[in-house]
Design a protein around this nucleic acid. Sequence first.
DNA 1: TATTGTTATACTCTATAACTATA
DNA 2: TATAGTTATAGAGTATAACAATA
Lengths: 157, 157
Amino acid sequence: MEAVSLLQHQVEQQLRAEGDLSYVQFQLLARLATSHGRMTMTQLADGVVYSRSGLTYQAGLLEEAGLITRGRSPDDDRATLVTVTDKGRALFDRVLPGHVQVTRRMLFDPLADDELERLGDIMSRVRDHMRAQPPRSAARGNRGLGPAARAKAAPRE
Amino acid sequence: MEAVSLLQHQVEQQLRAEGDLSYVQFQLLARLATSHGRMTMTQLADGVVYSRSGLTYQAGLLEEAGLITRGRSPDDDRATLVTVTDKGRALFDRVLPGHVQVTRRMLFDPLADDELERLGDIMSRVRDHMRAQPPRSAARGNRGLGPAARAKAAPRE
DNA sequence: TATTGTTATACTCTATAACTATA
DNA sequence: TATAGTTATAGAGTATAACAATA
Protein backbone atom coordinates (compact mmCIF):
# COMPACT_ATOMS: atom_id res chain seq x y z
CA MET A 1 0.00 0.00 0.00
CA GLU A 2 2.88 2.34 0.62
CA ALA A 3 4.24 1.70 -2.85
CA VAL A 4 0.84 2.43 -4.32
CA SER A 5 0.55 5.60 -2.28
CA LEU A 6 3.91 6.83 -3.48
CA LEU A 7 3.05 6.00 -7.07
CA GLN A 8 -0.30 7.71 -6.92
CA HIS A 9 1.22 10.77 -5.39
CA GLN A 10 3.87 11.06 -8.05
CA VAL A 11 1.39 10.45 -10.83
CA GLU A 12 -0.89 13.14 -9.45
CA GLN A 13 1.99 15.58 -9.24
CA GLN A 14 2.88 15.03 -12.85
CA LEU A 15 -0.70 15.30 -14.11
CA ARG A 16 -1.30 18.43 -12.08
CA ALA A 17 1.94 20.04 -13.16
CA GLU A 18 1.72 19.26 -16.86
CA GLY A 19 -2.00 19.31 -17.46
CA ASP A 20 -3.70 20.69 -14.35
CA LEU A 21 -5.60 17.43 -14.10
CA SER A 22 -6.49 15.23 -11.17
CA TYR A 23 -6.02 11.51 -11.61
CA VAL A 24 -9.75 10.98 -11.85
CA GLN A 25 -9.98 13.60 -14.55
CA PHE A 26 -7.11 11.99 -16.38
CA GLN A 27 -8.80 8.62 -16.25
CA LEU A 28 -12.02 10.03 -17.63
CA LEU A 29 -10.16 11.81 -20.39
CA ALA A 30 -8.18 8.69 -21.16
CA ARG A 31 -11.33 6.61 -21.49
CA LEU A 32 -12.84 9.07 -23.89
CA ALA A 33 -9.70 9.66 -25.88
CA THR A 34 -9.06 5.95 -26.19
CA SER A 35 -12.60 4.96 -27.08
CA HIS A 36 -13.90 5.55 -30.55
CA GLY A 37 -17.18 7.33 -30.10
CA ARG A 38 -19.16 8.88 -27.33
CA MET A 39 -19.99 7.35 -23.98
CA THR A 40 -22.85 7.81 -21.59
CA MET A 41 -22.15 9.15 -18.15
CA THR A 42 -22.85 5.74 -16.67
CA GLN A 43 -20.42 4.00 -18.98
CA LEU A 44 -17.84 6.64 -18.27
CA ALA A 45 -18.23 6.31 -14.52
CA ASP A 46 -17.70 2.57 -14.40
CA GLY A 47 -14.64 1.68 -12.39
CA VAL A 48 -13.54 5.28 -11.96
CA VAL A 49 -16.04 6.92 -9.68
CA TYR A 50 -18.26 5.67 -6.88
CA SER A 51 -21.15 8.08 -7.04
CA ARG A 52 -23.21 9.64 -9.78
CA SER A 53 -22.90 13.11 -8.42
CA GLY A 54 -19.15 12.77 -8.27
CA LEU A 55 -19.06 12.13 -11.97
CA THR A 56 -21.41 14.99 -12.72
CA TYR A 57 -19.10 17.24 -10.77
CA GLN A 58 -15.99 16.10 -12.60
CA ALA A 59 -17.70 16.18 -15.96
CA GLY A 60 -18.77 19.73 -15.17
CA LEU A 61 -15.17 20.71 -14.59
CA LEU A 62 -13.96 19.01 -17.74
CA GLU A 63 -16.71 20.62 -19.79
CA GLU A 64 -16.00 24.02 -18.30
CA ALA A 65 -12.38 23.57 -19.28
CA GLY A 66 -13.48 22.77 -22.83
CA LEU A 67 -12.10 19.25 -22.74
CA ILE A 68 -15.38 17.41 -23.20
CA THR A 69 -18.88 18.04 -24.46
CA ARG A 70 -22.15 16.73 -23.13
CA GLY A 71 -25.31 16.23 -25.14
CA ARG A 72 -28.54 14.30 -25.22
CA SER A 73 -28.46 10.78 -26.53
CA PRO A 74 -30.64 10.17 -29.57
CA ASP A 75 -31.27 6.56 -28.53
CA ASP A 76 -32.24 7.23 -24.94
CA ASP A 77 -33.46 10.63 -23.97
CA ARG A 78 -32.48 10.06 -20.37
CA ALA A 79 -28.84 9.50 -21.20
CA THR A 80 -26.09 12.05 -21.65
CA LEU A 81 -23.48 11.36 -24.28
CA VAL A 82 -20.01 12.58 -23.50
CA THR A 83 -17.46 13.38 -26.18
CA VAL A 84 -13.86 14.50 -26.04
CA THR A 85 -13.14 17.74 -27.78
CA ASP A 86 -10.02 18.32 -29.86
CA LYS A 87 -8.70 20.32 -26.96
CA GLY A 88 -9.34 17.38 -24.68
CA ARG A 89 -7.50 15.03 -26.97
CA ALA A 90 -4.66 17.48 -27.30
CA LEU A 91 -4.33 17.78 -23.56
CA PHE A 92 -4.37 14.03 -23.16
CA ASP A 93 -1.67 13.68 -25.78
CA ARG A 94 0.36 16.36 -24.12
CA VAL A 95 0.16 14.79 -20.69
CA LEU A 96 0.51 11.15 -21.64
CA PRO A 97 4.27 11.01 -22.27
CA GLY A 98 5.05 12.39 -18.84
CA HIS A 99 2.60 9.97 -17.32
CA VAL A 100 4.26 7.05 -19.02
CA GLN A 101 7.62 8.34 -17.94
CA VAL A 102 6.65 8.62 -14.29
CA THR A 103 5.00 5.22 -14.31
CA ARG A 104 8.03 3.69 -15.91
CA ARG A 105 10.50 5.34 -13.60
CA MET A 106 8.57 4.55 -10.46
CA LEU A 107 7.04 1.17 -11.14
CA PHE A 108 8.47 -0.54 -14.20
CA ASP A 109 12.15 0.25 -13.97
CA PRO A 110 12.91 -1.72 -10.82
CA LEU A 111 11.18 -4.82 -12.15
CA ALA A 112 12.44 -7.52 -14.45
CA ASP A 113 10.29 -8.30 -17.48
CA ASP A 114 8.89 -11.50 -16.06
CA GLU A 115 8.14 -9.82 -12.77
CA LEU A 116 6.19 -7.09 -14.46
CA GLU A 117 4.26 -9.66 -16.39
CA ARG A 118 3.52 -11.59 -13.24
CA LEU A 119 2.42 -8.44 -11.47
CA GLY A 120 0.04 -7.73 -14.31
CA ASP A 121 -1.36 -11.24 -14.19
CA ILE A 122 -1.82 -11.17 -10.46
CA MET A 123 -3.46 -7.79 -10.26
CA SER A 124 -5.72 -8.51 -13.21
CA ARG A 125 -6.97 -11.57 -11.47
CA VAL A 126 -7.42 -9.69 -8.24
CA ARG A 127 -9.39 -7.02 -10.05
CA ASP A 128 -11.68 -9.58 -11.64
CA HIS A 129 -12.19 -11.21 -8.29
CA MET A 130 -13.01 -7.90 -6.62
CA ARG A 131 -15.46 -6.95 -9.32
CA ALA A 132 -17.25 -10.23 -8.79
CA GLN A 133 -17.50 -9.74 -5.04
CA PRO A 134 -21.03 -9.26 -3.77
CA PRO A 135 -21.53 -5.78 -2.37
CA ARG A 136 -21.58 -5.60 1.41
CA SER A 137 -24.65 -3.42 1.54
CA ALA A 138 -26.82 -3.48 -1.53
CA ALA A 139 -28.55 -0.24 -0.62
CA ARG A 140 -31.31 1.04 -2.82
CA GLY A 141 -30.99 4.07 -5.03
CA ASN A 142 -27.43 3.14 -5.64
CA ARG A 143 -27.31 1.06 -8.73
CA GLY A 144 -26.19 1.59 -12.27
CA LEU A 145 -22.54 2.35 -11.66
CA GLY A 146 -21.20 -1.18 -11.84
CA PRO A 147 -19.85 -3.42 -9.11
CA ALA A 148 -17.49 -0.82 -7.80
CA ALA A 149 -20.22 1.68 -7.20
CA ARG A 150 -22.61 -0.85 -5.80
CA ALA A 151 -20.08 -1.67 -3.11
CA LYS A 152 -20.81 1.70 -1.59
CA ALA A 153 -21.91 1.31 2.00
CA ALA A 154 -24.46 2.85 4.27
CA PRO A 155 -24.59 6.58 5.05
CA ARG A 156 -22.10 7.79 7.59
CA GLU A 157 -24.25 8.70 10.55
CA MET B 1 -4.81 0.62 -10.41
CA GLU B 2 -8.43 -0.41 -10.60
CA ALA B 3 -7.81 -3.32 -8.26
CA VAL B 4 -6.13 -0.98 -5.82
CA SER B 5 -8.98 1.47 -6.07
CA LEU B 6 -11.53 -1.21 -5.33
CA LEU B 7 -9.49 -2.50 -2.41
CA GLN B 8 -9.00 0.93 -0.92
CA HIS B 9 -12.67 1.67 -1.23
CA GLN B 10 -13.70 -1.50 0.52
CA VAL B 11 -11.13 -1.05 3.24
CA GLU B 12 -12.33 2.49 3.86
CA GLN B 13 -15.91 1.33 4.05
CA GLN B 14 -15.05 -1.24 6.68
CA LEU B 15 -12.96 1.14 8.77
CA ARG B 16 -15.60 3.83 8.62
CA ALA B 17 -18.41 1.44 9.46
CA GLU B 18 -16.72 -0.37 12.32
CA GLY B 19 -14.54 2.33 13.79
CA ASP B 20 -15.48 5.63 12.18
CA LEU B 21 -11.91 5.91 10.96
CA SER B 22 -10.43 7.02 7.67
CA TYR B 23 -7.64 4.91 6.25
CA VAL B 24 -5.08 7.53 7.15
CA GLN B 25 -6.32 7.58 10.71
CA PHE B 26 -6.18 3.81 10.83
CA GLN B 27 -2.61 3.84 9.60
CA LEU B 28 -1.58 6.35 12.24
CA LEU B 29 -3.31 4.37 14.93
CA ALA B 30 -1.75 1.17 13.68
CA ARG B 31 1.74 2.66 13.82
CA LEU B 32 1.26 3.80 17.36
CA ALA B 33 -0.46 0.65 18.55
CA THR B 34 2.20 -1.50 16.96
CA SER B 35 5.18 0.49 18.16
CA HIS B 36 6.30 0.19 21.74
CA GLY B 37 6.59 3.73 22.99
CA ARG B 38 5.79 7.21 21.79
CA MET B 39 6.60 8.73 18.44
CA THR B 40 7.22 12.27 17.31
CA MET B 41 4.88 13.80 14.78
CA THR B 42 7.59 13.63 12.16
CA GLN B 43 8.20 9.94 12.73
CA LEU B 44 4.50 9.30 12.69
CA ALA B 45 4.00 11.14 9.43
CA ASP B 46 6.64 9.22 7.52
CA GLY B 47 5.15 7.32 4.64
CA VAL B 48 1.57 8.12 5.62
CA VAL B 49 1.08 11.81 5.03
CA TYR B 50 2.59 14.30 2.62
CA SER B 51 2.32 17.53 4.56
CA ARG B 52 2.92 18.59 8.12
CA SER B 53 -0.35 20.39 8.44
CA GLY B 54 -2.18 17.33 7.23
CA LEU B 55 -0.79 15.33 10.09
CA THR B 56 -1.54 18.04 12.61
CA TYR B 57 -5.12 18.01 11.37
CA GLN B 58 -5.46 14.26 11.66
CA ALA B 59 -3.73 14.14 15.02
CA GLY B 60 -6.14 16.79 16.20
CA LEU B 61 -9.06 14.60 15.25
CA LEU B 62 -7.58 11.53 16.89
CA GLU B 63 -6.80 13.45 20.05
CA GLU B 64 -10.26 14.96 20.15
CA ALA B 65 -11.66 11.47 19.87
CA GLY B 66 -9.51 10.41 22.82
CA LEU B 67 -7.51 7.92 20.79
CA ILE B 68 -4.11 9.56 21.17
CA THR B 69 -2.33 12.01 23.41
CA ARG B 70 0.17 14.67 22.50
CA GLY B 71 2.84 16.06 24.76
CA ARG B 72 6.19 17.81 24.76
CA SER B 73 9.26 15.71 24.26
CA PRO B 74 11.75 15.82 27.13
CA ASP B 75 14.68 15.30 24.73
CA ASP B 76 13.75 17.96 22.21
CA ASP B 77 11.48 20.77 23.25
CA ARG B 78 10.43 21.37 19.66
CA ALA B 79 9.09 17.89 19.21
CA THR B 80 5.68 16.54 20.08
CA LEU B 81 5.45 13.01 21.37
CA VAL B 82 2.36 11.11 20.38
CA THR B 83 0.99 8.21 22.42
CA VAL B 84 -1.93 5.87 21.91
CA THR B 85 -4.45 5.85 24.69
CA ASP B 86 -6.09 2.70 25.95
CA LYS B 87 -9.15 3.76 24.06
CA GLY B 88 -7.05 4.08 20.93
CA ARG B 89 -5.63 0.62 21.37
CA ALA B 90 -9.08 -0.75 22.05
CA LEU B 91 -10.46 0.79 18.90
CA PHE B 92 -7.58 -0.55 16.87
CA ASP B 93 -8.13 -4.02 18.28
CA ARG B 94 -11.80 -3.78 17.55
CA VAL B 95 -11.33 -2.71 13.96
CA LEU B 96 -8.42 -4.93 13.03
CA PRO B 97 -10.24 -8.24 12.58
CA GLY B 98 -12.65 -6.74 10.07
CA HIS B 99 -9.76 -5.12 8.28
CA VAL B 100 -7.95 -8.41 8.01
CA GLN B 101 -11.11 -10.05 6.81
CA VAL B 102 -11.72 -7.52 4.06
CA THR B 103 -8.12 -7.63 2.95
CA ARG B 104 -8.21 -11.37 2.87
CA ARG B 105 -11.45 -11.61 1.02
CA MET B 106 -10.56 -9.01 -1.55
CA LEU B 107 -6.86 -9.48 -2.09
CA PHE B 108 -5.53 -12.70 -0.61
CA ASP B 109 -8.27 -15.19 -1.38
CA PRO B 110 -7.94 -15.18 -5.15
CA LEU B 111 -4.18 -15.70 -4.98
CA ALA B 112 -2.18 -18.85 -4.54
CA ASP B 113 0.39 -18.84 -1.75
CA ASP B 114 3.34 -18.44 -4.06
CA GLU B 115 1.62 -15.64 -5.93
CA LEU B 116 0.97 -13.73 -2.77
CA GLU B 117 4.56 -14.14 -1.78
CA ARG B 118 5.69 -12.94 -5.17
CA LEU B 119 3.39 -9.96 -4.99
CA GLY B 120 4.88 -9.06 -1.63
CA ASP B 121 8.39 -9.36 -2.96
CA ILE B 122 7.66 -7.30 -6.02
CA MET B 123 5.86 -4.50 -4.24
CA SER B 124 8.43 -4.34 -1.47
CA ARG B 125 11.11 -3.84 -4.02
CA VAL B 126 9.04 -1.24 -5.84
CA ARG B 127 8.51 0.61 -2.58
CA ASP B 128 12.18 0.64 -1.78
CA HIS B 129 12.93 1.89 -5.25
CA MET B 130 10.36 4.66 -5.00
CA ARG B 131 11.64 5.77 -1.64
CA ALA B 132 15.10 6.04 -3.09
CA GLN B 133 13.95 8.11 -6.04
CA PRO B 134 15.25 11.66 -6.04
CA PRO B 135 12.42 14.12 -5.58
CA ARG B 136 11.39 15.91 -8.75
CA SER B 137 11.32 19.32 -7.15
CA ALA B 138 13.41 19.63 -4.04
CA ALA B 139 11.65 22.77 -2.94
CA ARG B 140 12.72 24.47 0.23
CA GLY B 141 10.67 24.52 3.39
CA ASN B 142 9.54 21.07 2.61
CA ARG B 143 11.83 18.68 4.34
CA GLY B 144 11.60 16.49 7.34
CA LEU B 145 8.84 14.15 6.30
CA GLY B 146 10.95 11.56 4.54
CA PRO B 147 11.28 10.80 0.84
CA ALA B 148 7.56 10.62 0.29
CA ALA B 149 7.00 14.10 1.58
CA ARG B 150 9.98 15.51 -0.19
CA ALA B 151 8.45 14.41 -3.47
CA LYS B 152 5.86 17.11 -3.03
CA ALA B 153 5.88 19.43 -5.99
CA ALA B 154 5.47 23.11 -6.64
CA PRO B 155 2.41 25.12 -5.60
CA ARG B 156 -0.60 24.84 -7.83
CA GLU B 157 -0.97 28.30 -9.29
C1' DT C 1 19.98 28.87 10.25
C1' DA C 2 17.51 24.73 10.29
C1' DT C 3 13.94 22.02 12.28
C1' DT C 4 9.44 20.93 14.72
C1' DG C 5 4.98 21.71 14.88
C1' DT C 6 0.66 24.56 14.65
C1' DT C 7 -2.67 27.75 12.63
C1' DA C 8 -5.29 30.19 9.19
C1' DT C 9 -7.09 29.74 4.95
C1' DA C 10 -8.51 28.28 0.59
C1' DC C 11 -9.73 24.74 -2.21
C1' DT C 12 -10.75 20.10 -4.07
C1' DC C 13 -13.32 16.33 -3.88
C1' DT C 14 -16.88 13.09 -2.42
C1' DA C 15 -21.30 11.60 -1.07
C1' DT C 16 -26.27 11.81 0.39
C1' DA C 17 -30.72 13.21 -0.52
C1' DA C 18 -34.04 15.23 -3.24
C1' DC C 19 -35.52 16.04 -7.72
C1' DT C 20 -36.57 15.88 -12.93
C1' DA C 21 -37.33 13.37 -16.82
C1' DT C 22 -37.55 9.41 -19.64
C1' DA C 23 -38.11 3.96 -20.42
C1' DT D 1 -41.47 1.25 -11.24
C1' DA D 2 -36.71 1.61 -12.62
C1' DT D 3 -33.03 4.13 -14.68
C1' DA D 4 -30.10 8.43 -16.15
C1' DG D 5 -28.51 12.38 -14.72
C1' DT D 6 -28.33 16.88 -12.12
C1' DT D 7 -28.45 19.91 -8.14
C1' DA D 8 -28.00 21.43 -3.44
C1' DT D 9 -25.55 20.87 0.35
C1' DA D 10 -22.61 19.38 3.80
C1' DG D 11 -18.41 17.52 5.31
C1' DA D 12 -13.81 15.50 5.04
C1' DG D 13 -9.42 16.10 3.72
C1' DT D 14 -5.23 18.37 1.80
C1' DA D 15 -1.87 21.81 1.04
C1' DT D 16 0.34 26.45 1.13
C1' DA D 17 1.99 30.14 3.65
C1' DA D 18 2.95 32.40 7.71
C1' DC D 19 4.19 31.82 12.23
C1' DA D 20 6.35 30.59 16.99
C1' DA D 21 9.63 28.18 19.39
C1' DT D 22 13.63 25.46 19.99
C1' DA D 23 18.39 23.27 18.34
